[in-house]
């Protein structure tokens, strides 16, 4: 396991589903090291394009006890990323120094195989460039010394109006993200696949809300 693991924690307790993180990600990355992120049929029927981050919506329960969950999803930067070993070219890799999972567009042959190996659908083939793309954790922002210290954060984190996206090193117990995960019972998605996703989700803080959080966690621990 790497010493440092950068990631996002997403606070479902405050996310209002505004999609700010979706378009800020798009605009930063489309002219960044990800190159252009192509859009197909931009002004025709069925417009679609490459996005690294999408916000989905789920309805939980029945009226009138309905909860609506807005659910942003990007690459989890798994600590044990199944998408990496399957890649035949080595284009997909996990950086040892900070745990970011990246794709080298110059090596990628666009075989899609890594996307089959990601249970979250976090990878999207850019249909124009024909290479695999995914969240880069804004690797070209977070280390850019020409930026102000406070700007060295992913675009989606900077823009999120509710501050629902917390960025940092989950292995550093003093970091905001590690503390948020700890104090708010942050959890991982689909733990059944044992990929150890680095991104965490902070549950709804609502008594009506039957959340994963505590109960499940302790159960898991018992089993171990």
């Amino acid at each position: 396991m790497s010493k440092k693991q950068l990631a996002l924690a997403i606070d479902l307790n405050v996310c209002v589903g505004c999609s700010a993180c979706v378009t800020s990600c798009k605009q930063w990355n489309t002219s960044g090291s990800a190159g252009a992120m192509a859009d197909q049929n931009p002004y025709d029927a069925d417009p679609s394009g490459t996005f690294f981050n999408r916000v989905q919506t789920f309805e939980v329960g029945s009226f009138p006890n309905t909860e609506v969950v807005h659910f942003p999803k990007s690459c989890m930067h798994c600590e044990n990323p199944p998408c990496v070993p399957v890649c035949p070219t080595g284009a997909s890799y996990k950086r040892a120094e900070d745990g970011i999972v990246l794709v080298d567009y110059d090596k990628c042959i666009g075989c899609n195989y890594c996307s089959w190996a990601c249970p979250w659908g976090a990878r999207e083939l850019d249909e124009f460039k024909k290479v695999m793309t995914k969240c880069t954790l804004c690797v070209d922002r977070i280390y850019d010394e020409s930026l102000d210290e406070r700007d060295r954060k992913p675009a989606c984190v900077l823009s999120c109006p509710t501050g629902a996206r917390i960025f940092g090193d989950i292995k550093d117990p003093a970091s905001d993200i590690a503390q948020a995960i700890d104090s708010r019972n942050g959890y991982q998605l689909m733990p059944e696949w044992e990929t150890n996703p680095a991104n965490h989700y902070l549950p709804r803080d609502n008594k009506n809300f039957d959340q994963h959080a505590n109960a499940d966690k302790s159960k898991d621990e018992e089993q171990k």
Binding site: A20, S24, W28, L158, G163
Partner: peptide
């Protein structure tokens, strides 16, 4: 290249919504 919320602005203090980020 990039439209960013101005952190020194009293109204939004750096944040930016989905529309604002799509100004390009």
């Amino acid at each position: 290249r990039f439209i960013q919320g101005n952190p020194d602005h009293p109204l939004n203090q750096g944040i930016l919504c989905a529309k604002g980020s799509a100004g390009i």
